[in-house]
Amino acid sequence: MRVAQSETYRSFLGNLETLNERMNKLNSQVSSGKKLAQLKDSPASSAQLIGMRDQAAEIDQYQTNIDSGSYFLGMADSIFNEVNNLVTSIYAKGSQSASESVTADDRATIGTEIRSLRDQILALANSQVLGRYIFAGSRTSSAPFIVSGDTVSYQGDETANKISVDRGLEVQEGVPGSAAFNSIFSAVDSLLSNVSSNNMDGIQTALGQFASALSGLGIARGEIGANLGLLNNAKTNLGSQETSLKAQQSQVEDANMAEAVTGLSQVQTALQTAMTAGGSILQQRNLFDILG
């Protein structure tokens, strides 16, 4: 069979080219750790990655939301805890003032003490967290509770913001102050007016309101606790979602290092062999070399 010179060169070059391409690809896999350099490497994987990255960013966002939600709910809970203590103290003062042995003057003193405790509750009800009045519903830019005489009125609204914490899952982050505080303030208001008018029966009636005010506070705290629980569950869920998503993502985009490195050394060997063999083929003597 005739073998033309140009054919020998072409096959040799063609083989080198193929090997070089393979080596380049493996090289970039080993150095970048990624198996997808260009979209054409695997269009389906690249498209899949779009969805995965989107989901990963969403999970990140949900986690941030959960942290923010936990912070606000946690603040509200600890404020309610303090309020609970203050209400209990007011109740004790009220009970004290209900005693017949207390003089009118002493009762007036107790009234002042109760008013000061009420002001502490008021300050807590008007708490600002990160610059927002957290018990104002959506009217977070101004103080929700204002006092006139001994009557405290609520200026906020009933909006309770929800935040997304997972796909299709929203948790209530906002705690409008009206439900918890209105009955407390009205009980304290009625107590104060009866204390100042020395109306013993009135004081007893006012003290009777405290039970429902405290239970209202309890219900509000219970809700906060439940929501914090939801956030916690969501966080755990997101954690495991994230882990499996990362595993999937890695499967799609990360190079199998062991395979790539082995492949690389195989190609290197092949390339070396091809060069050695090619060199000797290309230098092969033909009849002309032998002809004197």
């Binding site: 939301n65 939600g69 927002r132 913001n161």
Partner: peptide, 30 residues
Amino acid sequence: IFNENSGQGLQEAFSGFFNSFSSLSATPED
């Protein structure tokens, strides 16, 4: 030009845009 496999393409911009609304939802007056 798409540069999508690097994770710095349009997908990132899209996610960032929509997620910014969710960030805002936590403290809308911020």
